[in-house]
Design a binder for these strands. Sequence first.
DNA 1: GATGACGCTGGAAGCGCTTCCAGTCTTAGG
DNA 2: CCTAAGACTGGAAGCGCTTCCAGCGTCATC
Lengths: 336, 336
Amino acid sequence: MAATPRRQPTLDEVAERAGVSRSAASRVINNAPHVSRATRDAVEKAIKALGYLPNRTARALATQQTGIVALAVSHDDPELFADPFFAQVIVGVSAALEDTDLHLLLCLASSGRGRSRLTNLLHTRGVDGIMLMALHGDDPLTHIVRRAGLPAVYGGRPLHAEPQWYVDSDNLGGARLATEHLIGLGRTRIVTITGQMYTDVGEARYRGYREAMIMAGLTPHGTAEGDFTEASGAAAMKVLLDRHPDLDAVFAASDNMAAGALRVLGDAGRRVPADVAVVGFDDLAIAERTEPPLTTVHQSIQALGREMTRMLIGLIAGQERSSMILPTRLIRRESA
Amino acid sequence: MAATPRRQPTLDEVAERAGVSRSAASRVINNAPHVSRATRDAVEKAIKALGYLPNRTARALATQQTGIVALAVSHDDPELFADPFFAQVIVGVSAALEDTDLHLLLCLASSGRGRSRLTNLLHTRGVDGIMLMALHGDDPLTHIVRRAGLPAVYGGRPLHAEPQWYVDSDNLGGARLATEHLIGLGRTRIVTITGQMYTDVGEARYRGYREAMIMAGLTPHGTAEGDFTEASGAAAMKVLLDRHPDLDAVFAASDNMAAGALRVLGDAGRRVPADVAVVGFDDLAIAERTEPPLTTVHQSIQALGREMTRMLIGLIAGQERSSMILPTRLIRRESA
DNA sequence: GATGACGCTGGAAGCGCTTCCAGTCTTAGG
DNA sequence: CCTAAGACTGGAAGCGCTTCCAGCGTCATC
């Protein structure tokens, strides 16, 4: 037999027991003004005695607020979702939710089915607002969300489509930082391994590299595109070594790609950092375990999640908010 | 300015437009019996014209079903939550939810605050049921959940406290499989590195090893306790080599520990599998990348999530259900 | 032609809460 | 002592949906 959902006491029972009207009891619970000391005490006593807790659904119907926010992730490929990135975001979001009475609904919305479920959720007013992560350029979610007309905050920006509210890491600035660090080391033949150039992250990190080079009076020395994975970093490194055997530094747009590059450099007999300095991006756990440990750009994913959530809460409350860029910083280890 | 939540059309408007009563319209939507062809057509036309979608909250209030299930995880340590394990569970859960109209609420409930939020969620009837993961022996969540009287399914069993409904991997059987494999290889001086013995997983995997040994007429050759991490596996391996220099095989209760053991064995000059055969447990990604690749016991975490969800859905629907143990199987690679 | 049985229908009563509003009771000020 | 401004109060009307029920036709059966 399935569990028997005990019947919870209702506000009416509380009111009756306290000898007041339901409205009075309601006022006590929401501690609204115009409640006498005596009423308050009586109601509170009744609440305690009955173990009363207001029914969420009923309250939601009356107030038109569900008390739930959604986090939609546009990847349900287990491998990609398993990325610690999402876990970090979720931890950040949860932290920000911790002292509100909002709860988190998680939607994996990459498949058609997932997307239509999300659409339905939004249009049936199942949540008060939504956070979106990891969208590609023209992800259909963008339209779905806009049409629903609910408060929505983006984590990162879809390329070429600046949403009204987003929180993003300073990819441009971080890449510049990394490149400037290499330049400061006296390197001049600096190449870069980029992420996919059709993503905002990939594009911004490349732009940061480029800007730093030009500002320093150097010319970008070579570029190869990867897809943020270790394997792609290794492949890109091979291409670059082949085309620019004289390179003396590489900026990889992700730690994973940097790890791949490190491996290839080692195999090619180049010493790091003596012959080639390497810096990555993300500051994942892997960065501490590469050989040598990786100098990289740190971004706080938890902070990203936290700020998205704060922003969303603000929007739901009807406050003015503006988008925000979270700072990144260079972590110096031994590879550069 | 915050987004303006467009007003959605209501059932009354649909009914009016279709020229029928609200109850008739409702019947069409829930495709209940006793609806004439004409009524159905009229209502469906009105629905299409108005873009109507039933309000979730209102429906929830009337039916006493929220359409939301919770997944509570008793770890919010980012490091632990980042474990691909949880991501896999979530993917499995989402898959099972995909063709229902239930949604997933995620609760990180290890802190006191998190737990009281969860308690509140359950008692305010914010969800229809709950799935619990990764509980230690006497986790307070157990009581909280029992008291709430909602359908609850456990992933894995808390030690010494068999919940009424759970889904678990066959840890005992898997460990036996692993040990038997080593025995089949002709090894006789087989040691084991266990997980924490105060967890059900740790205990069951140890028991499987022990039973297999005894069944084969061998005596357990040596045991060291780890905590499922790579570092602890390495430490345990050192101890075992020291105490049982003649060992010819090791069964590690997790791939991470096996990886640590492999490293230590290599440093000690033992060849794997020639001198010492090693088998792990979990079949994580790491198992394919160790040197040599690790023979291990595979368990499907996604399946775990999926089955938990199916079971919960059944319970919510009032069906009879019984707990279930998911099979594990041996994956042969090169370490044994 | 009377009689059920049955399919369909709309009215109405909830689900459990919030909130508006019109009253009643104080109280201070004149 | 009268009055008006507050402070409280409970009744009632929602929020948007489901569902029970009584009522109505329509048909096949006797």
